[in-house]
C-alpha cells in the first residue's frame, strides 16, 4: 500500500502524516506527478486561502493532474473545497471534480469561522463504516458546500450543509479527520481500506 499526501505548500500536512503514523501507516509527502500516479491512495490536504492555494496547484501543474487521478483521492478541508466547481473565496475557479460551488456562511446569527466539534449525520458509504450517526468531527471553516446530491455526510450550522461528498474515486471531507479523535482515525482507516 503506497499512500501519498500531496505537498503543495498549503496546509498542516504534518498532522495528517502523524495521524497515519499513529495508525501504523507510512505516508509520503510529495508533489511529484510520477509518485502520485503510482500511489494506491492519495490525500489532498489544504488549509488557508482558496485563490492562493489554487495558484500553487496551477504553478506545479497539479491542477491538471488531480482531476485525472484514477485511484481513491481524499480531499480534506480546503482540499475538498478545491475539488468543487468554484468557490466565492477570492472568486476562485477550482478543479471541478464535484459539480457544486462553495459559498460563505452568511447567517448573521453565526460566528464565522465555524470552529469546533459538530455532529455529522446522513452518513453514506464505506468511508463511514463503524462511525455512528451523530458522531462529532472537528471543523474550522468560513466557506461551505450547501446540501448536494453527491453528499455522503451532512452537518448543521444554521442549516444542514454538506461535510463529505463523493464522485467516483474522489472523496472530500470538510472536517479534519486527523484532528477528530478516534472517529477521525476510523475514517482515515476506512479510506485506506477502500476497494478500488
Amino acid at each position: 500500500m503506497k499512500l501519498s499526501i500531496i505537498d503543495y505548500g498549503a496546509g498542516n500536512i504534518k498532522s495528517i502524516q502523524f495521524a497515519f503514523q499513529r495508525l501504523g501507516i507510512k505516508a509520503q509527502l510529495t508533489n511529484s506527478p510520477e509518485e502520485l500516479i503510482n500511489s494506491d491512495k492519495i490525500i489532498f490536504p489544504g488549509v488557508g486561502e482558496a485563490s492562493s492555494a489554487m495558484q500553487k496547484l496551477q504553478s506545479t501543474g497539479l491542477d491538471q493532474l488531480i482531476p485525472n487521478l484514477k485511484q481513491p483521492v481524499l480531499g480534506i478541508c480546503l482540499g475538498m473545497q478545491l475539488m468543487c466547481h468554484k468557490t466565492t473565496e477570492g472568486n476562485t475557479n477550482a478543479l471541478g471534480i464535484f459539480d457544486v460551488d462553495v459559498i460563505k456562511f452568511s447567517n448573521s446569527d453565526l460566528k464565522v469561522p465555524q470552529v469546533g466539534w459538530n455532529a455529522i449525520h446522513s452518513l453514506k458509504g464505506d468511508l463511514f463504516n463503524g462511525i455512528s450517526e451523530g458522531e462529532f468531527m472537528y471543523l474550522v471553516h468560513s466557506y461551505y458546500v450547501p446540501k448536494y446530491v453527491e453528499a455522503i455526510a451532512l452537518s448543521n450550522y444554521g442549516n444542514d450543509y454538506t461535510v463529505a461528498l463523493q464522485h467516483q474515486n474522489f472523496y472530500g471531507v470538510q472536517f479534519h479527520p486527523e484532528k477528530s479523535g478516534r472517529a477521525g482515525e476510523q475514517l482515515l482507516e476506512n479510506f485506506i481500506k477502500l476497494k478500488v
Partner: peptide
Amino acid sequence: VEDIAQHINIP
C-alpha cells in the same frame, strides 16, 4: 510541539 503533534488526535 512536534512531540505533542505525533501523540494527540485533537487540535
